[in-house]
């Protein structure tokens, strides 16, 4: 069965780059959200196994999405893919429950390793 994956980024190009970086042989059902609110709504609805989450977005940002997921107890493996590459941003998202923090532009090899380490793909 295909694994539901949610890609969250305000940039269309960035979502495409992220989707292209997923392992080619992995059977996934892709969903996309262009903002934090939409991501949360989809997360409740489709219950993705994996969320690939951007941080800097207009409106609700990635940090707030993670906080809300924690509050609501939404279970999903979250990998943050971020242009904000400060160590404090990384520490904060890991504290909020993300399993990994990858810098943009995302590297397919790095992403594949994170997915393997978390029993996905």
């Amino acid at each position: 069965m295909a694994t539901p994956v949610l890609v969250v980024d305000d940039s269309t190009m960035s979502r495409k780059l992220t989707m292209r970086a997923l392992p080619a042989d992995w059977n996934v059902e892709l969903h996309q959200a262009s903002g934090g609110e939409e991501a949360l709504a989809l997360c409740r609805q489709i219950k993705p196994r994996l969320m690939l989450l951007d941080l800097t977005m207009p409106g609700m940002d990635g940090f707030e999405v993670l906080e809300a997921m924690g509050r609501e107890g939404l279970e999903c493996v979250v990998v943050v893919i971020s242009a904000d590459i400060q160590p404090k941003a990384e520490a904060r998202v890991l504290e909020l429950g993300a399993v990994a923090f990858l810098p943009k532009p995302v590297d397919a090899g790095q992403l594949a390793r994170v997915l393997r380490e978390n029993g996905l793909s």
Binding site: S11, T12, M13, T56, A83, D84, I85, Q86, K104
Partner: peptide, 22 residues
């Protein structure tokens, strides 16, 4: 698409500069 690519490119460049400033 071009505008989106421009903003995303600026976003990444800014992130790198932000890390240097931090």
């Amino acid at each position: 698409d071009q505008l989106d690519a421009l903003q995303e490119t600026a976003n990444i460049a800014m992130g790198q500069a932000g890390a240097v400033l931090a």
